[in-house]
Design a protein around this nucleic acid. Sequence first.
DNA 1: GCGTTGACTGGAA
DNA 2: TTTCCAGCCAACG
Length: 105
Amino acid sequence: MMCCMAHAGRSSGPANQARSAEIIRRVQAIPEGFVRTYGDIDPHAPRHVGQVLSASSEDMPWHRVVRSDGSLAKGRRQRSLLRKEGVPMRGDRVDLRLARMSAKS
DNA sequence: GCGTTGACTGGAA
DNA sequence: TTTCCAGCCAACG
């Protein structure tokens, strides 16, 4: 089944926007009190996730996105928000054992 | 079309 | 346990 995006092209295409849109959609889908790693949101391009979040509006729970080891990308600023939402944490790191959600909804 | 940058990840020391 | 290195993908100039 390669019909869908057979010749979609990799520049200025709808599929291109879909990639970023999908990342934003997943981040907004994170319920309060839980977190997800960049790799869970986009295992193919975890780096792009952060880049999209930085370029996106602050109307999304970007603070619920943490690294695979539970460490925070934005440090103290992010930690305060997570702890305020009731996210289980261990020092300056999130306890992924309890806060990490499934790979997908 | 090419090279650089980035809110990353996993494995090795 | 922490720190360092190399790999990957997408966006930008």
